[in-house]
Design a protein around this nucleic acid. Structure first.
Length: 890
RNA sequence: GCCGAAGUGGCGGAACUGGUAGACGCGCUGGACUCAAAAUCCAGUGGUGGCAACACUGUGUGGGUUCGAGUCCCACCUUCGGUACCA
């Protein structure tokens, strides 16, 4: 019988859909440990349709889900669309088509394509972030963020009504109370230095600006800094919780956790106040090395620091002003490009070193950043590489205050002479001022730091401080196609959020989607939508910014739990039933941002009692990227694949005849190496596509697509179909011992590999089993059916078809997964590899229960051994039961 | 520079806590079927030497630990991903 995969796949997809095979309910009959929530990172439905990279993760989770169902689990496995985003809006600007039209069209394409892969989603739970029924709750969560403050003592978010207002604020009046609260809210509206992309006419988050100074989304380098009123979230308040939480995420990849730790960037040190000589001002710095205060020989403040203009003396005014101006025009790219050569300028002013009263010059330099710490540093060139470089360049004194420990003599001499920088531990020298009661000479770093901090705190000029790299999160965008903020700006300057009953605040229909030149969102053109009036006649204007794409994806896993609920984002009972997500699979590119933002929102919701778990995702796994072969000339220029010709395993340009190198690259339109899943499904079937993606290599690895690889697994499935569908191959007689052995090995392997997400080796084992059966030409009905069940999570259509051919009338989706039986796996004998001095020479078969000493005698007495022992002395014989025999001869 | 991941046949990749390196698949070679091709099936396939049995060699490089190292330790090289003066 022909393997008509198209007919088979259509038939079973229809069956699953009509019977709602994979619809799931919160059935109380399943105890908590028999429920599993398996989630894919939902896609952005782009206009170009599904990419072969998408089905990789989707197939992996699908296999786990199908397997778990057969293990008696209640499985939540949903899919949806992260559908807000720029492309639909840009298309609207060009053509006037409403973004929702484009979006729906793209979703339809994605849905059709995903359905053609036979993934066992519960489609009744499909969600779409652009659906007002969905974004109503995104707005609802924003209101919660706005109404939450972070209690540092309890390390917990609490409702703003629970914020105690200090008496001295209360007496000042309503306005001051409001301001006090606004300063505490997790969401706030304020001026922010933001990146502005001139091409997109949009504010971008810091992280959307790439290293080369271009905007991630559009590639344009026309980005600049602007000061604009924006919505921000105080995520740094949760830094400690987000950091500590990582330790409990034992089923997350260490690499992802490490990246998040670095991103959060916790560092401990102290804030220290420096008085400015001849002024009332105090310059506060953050340092991780307060112990090196005696080595501070100058200070640096960032060009954007508010004290710059106050500090600078008349003599230096012009030069400093010019420098600050120049720095402001530099993009971060320029600043880092010039990293090798630091720039800066003296302000004419001196600060007083609190540990010894010494006057040290204050400089302005752009290697100090405004956004980190206090935007000012004390510079200790002898013990900080950046300061060292700078001091060298500007001839600032370098004063060593630490005798290097563990350094070689040469380095030590250089350090002590101020010719080298030492950042490691050592013993303090020159670090005492008896008149101030401070002496750390002779101590090492750890002791020095704590002693100095103690001294600073006692004197009231400094305190221990923890700093994070993590910054406030900018959450507004000047776009139409995003969630509108449920916010009103009143004429008197008050800001208020909508009441829950007013949600969703729907996007208004617009005539044009062009952003305003001034940087205003297209919503500024929304006419009546903008205008509001309260019951006292006060007028207000709606917020015209919208939320970024992160917003919808920050909490979608919660909506899947109860997607049609219109009274609440999800029911508490259902949330308790399913959460947390047991397995979350997606691309590594979301290692930091999406996962960090999402964890942040989740923790806030947890603090407010809205969700029952502290963390959203128990196990995280990153799938690797699927790449494709591409070709380049010897000089490195890329050649589109359709201009390449293969001859004898070498590659040539059809145009120039030049020999080309085969490389592995991302699929791209310009390289013409994009593989379309639709084509693969049409030519080989969804089961082949699924199986190939899993067989290519480890799930987390980056690997190149090859057509011949698909053909390989297609051949396997064809052989499976042919062999197991032919009645003459299936016997009713008892199974042979050797077949039972490989069958049970296969069951064991497949089971273990699904649980460990190592699909490639499980598939290899199933191939071995099939090859074995074909070679034998017969297999028992029982073995065949067990094998079909093993195969079914991977190639569900074919498995269902074979299951039916074997006389079953219902889906195999809930058939119990076979148990492997140890008795078929244990061996009586083992073929021992016998090696001499570690080199394998021959093999001998012995019973597994044969004692070591007998094996030893048998080996040494064997005629094959004679050759290797002759003329030598047997020093030792190592027998590892069931593994190896090694004879040591000299 | 720093952080992370990884280097195994012609290619994708196997190898459990140190115990037969190269499972499985692709490709290639030979054979069967065919007028022929495709498809399919059978056999072989790390390299070198040999008619062969077999021997030598072989997991990025150089050392080390061990009876035994792809696996552990030290140093280095290369590739990929992330990040950018974080005080």
């Amino acid at each position: 019988m022909e393997y008509n995969f198209t007919r088979i796949e259509k038939k079973w997809q229809k069956y699953w859909e009509e019977n709602k095979t994979f619809k799931v309910t919160e059935d109380p009959a399943f105890p908590k440990e028999k429920r599993i929530y398996v989630l894919d990172m939902f896609p952005y439905p782009s206009g170009s349709g599904l990419h072969v990279g998408h089905p990789e993760g989707y197939t992996a989770t699908d296999i786990v889900c199908r397997y778990k169902r057969m293990r008696g689990f209640n499985v939540l496995h949903p899919m949806g669309w992260d559908a807000f985003g720029l492309p639909a809006e840009q298309y609207a600007i060009q053509t006037g088509t409403h973004p929702s039209v484009t979006t729906n069209h793209n979703c339809d394409t994605f849905r059709r394509q995903i359905k053609s892969l036979g993934l066992s989603y519960d489609w009744d739970r499909e969600i779409n972030t652009t659906d007002p029924g969905y974004y109503k709750w995104t707005q609802w969560i924003f209101i919660r963020l706005y109404n939450t403050w972070f209690d540092e003592k309890l390390q917990k978010g609490r409702h703003i009504d629970e914020l105690e207002i200090p008496q001295e604020i209360k007496v000042k009046g309503k306005r001051e109370v409001r301001e006090y609260r606004d300063k505490k809210r997790l969401a706030y509206y304020d001026n922010a230095q933001v990146w502005w992309c001139n091409q997109c006419k949009i504010v971008c988050a810091n992280e959307e600006i790439l290293n080369d100074g271009s905007h991630e989304k559009c590639g344009s380098k026309e980005v600049e800094r602007r000061n604009l009123k924006q919505w921000m979230l105080r995520i740094p308040l949760y830094a400690e919780r987000l950091l500590e939480g990582l330790d409990d995420l034992t089923e997350w990849p260490e690499s992802v956790k490490e990246m998040q730790r670095n991103w959060i960037g916790r560092s401990t040190g102290a804030d220290v106040d420096f008085e400015i000589d001849g002024m009332e001002e105090v310059l506060k710095v953050f340092t991780t090395r307060p112990d090196t205060l005696f080595g501070a020989t100058y200070m640096v403040i960032a060009p954007e620091h508010e004290l710059v203009s106050k500090l600078v003396t008349d003599e230096y005014k012009k030069a400093v002003k010019d420098y600050v101006k120049a720095a402001s025009l530099k993009s971060d790219l320029d600043r880092t490009d010039l990293a090798k050569e630091k720039t800066g300028i003296f302000t004419g002013r001196y600060a007083v070193n609190p540990v010894n009263g010494e006057k040290i010059p204050v400089w302005v330099a752009d290697y100090v950043l405004t956004g980190y710490g206090t935007g000012a540093i004390m510079a200790v060139p002898a013990h900080d590489t950046r300061d060292f470089e700078y001091a060298k360049k500007f001839n600032i004194p370098i004063r060593p205050i630490m005798d290097p420990e563990g350094a070689d003599e040469k380095t030590r001499r250089q350090v002590l002479a101020g010719d080298a920088c030492w950042t490691e531990d050592g013993i303090y020298i020159n670090s005492a001022d008896p008149s101030r009661g401070l002496d750390i000479n002779g101590l090492n770093k750890e002791a020095g730091i704590s002693k100095i901090i103690g001294w600073l705190e006692e004197k009231g000029i400094g305190e221990a401080k923890v700093n994070y790299k993590l910054r406030d999160w900018l959450v507004s965008r000047q776009r139409y196609w995003g969630e509108p903020f449920p916010v009103i700006h009143w004429e008197d300057g008050e800001i208020s959020v909508l009441d829950d009953y007013e949600l969703p605040l729907k996007l208004p229909e617009l005539e044009k989607y062009q952003p305003g030149e001034s940087g205003e969102s297209p919503l500024a053109n929304a006419g009546n939508w903008l205008k509001v009036k309260d019951k006292n006649g006060r007028t207000g204007r709606r917020e015209t910014n919208t939320m970024p794409q992160w917003a919808g994806s920050c909490w979608y896993y919660l909506r899947f739990i109860d997607p049609q609920n219109d009274r609440e984002p999800f029911s508490k009972e259902k949330e308790k039933y399913w959460m947390p997500v047991d397995l979350y699979i997606g691309g590594a590119e979301h290692a930091v941002l999406h996962l960090l933002y999402s964890r942040f929102w989740h923790k806030v919701l947890y603090d407010l009692g809205i969700v029952s778990t502290d963390e959203p995702y128990t196990k995280l796994y990153n799938q690797g990227m699927i790449l494709a072969y591409a070709y380049e000339t010897k000089s490195g220029s890329k050649i589109p694949s359709d201009e390449v010709e293969e001859r004898d395993g070498r590659f040539f340009s059809r145009v120039t005849g030049e020999e080309l190198n085969q490389i592995v690259a991302k699929m791209s339109k310009t390289l013409k190496n994009v593989v379309n899943p639709d084509d693969v499904v049409r030519n080989y079937g969804a089961d082949s596509l699924r199986l190939y993606e899993m067989f290519m290599g480890p799930l987390e690895a980056t690997k190149p697509w090859t057509e011949s690889g698909v053909k390989g697994v297609f051949g396997f499935l064809s052989r499976v179909h042919k062999f197991f569908s032919e009645r003459k191959n299936i016997t009713e007689e008892p199974e042979d011992k050797d077949t039972l052995k490989i069958l049970h090995q296969t069951i064991k392997k497949v089971q273990g590999d699904i649980e460990g997400l190592r699909f490639n080796t499980g598939i290899a084992k199933m191939m071995e089993f099939t090859n074995h059966c074909i070679r034998k030409g017969r297999v028992s009905r029982d073995s065949a059916e067990k094998f079909i069940i093993c195969l079914s999570p991977f190639a569900p259509h074919l498995a269902e078809e074979l299951w039916e051919l074997h006389g079953h009338e219902t889906t195999l989706a809930f058939e119990p997964f076979p148990q492997y039986d140890k008795q078929y796996l244990v061996e009586d004998t083992y073929e021992y590899p016998v090696s001499f001095n570690g080199k394998l020479r021959f093999k001998l078969e012995f019973p597994l229960d044969m004692p070591d000493s007998e094996i030893e005698n048998a080996v040494l007495g064997h005629e094959s051994a004679r050759k290797w022992i002759e003329g030598k002395q047997v020093k030792k014989v190592i027998v590892v039961r069931g593994k190896i025999v090694n004879v040591v001869v000299i």
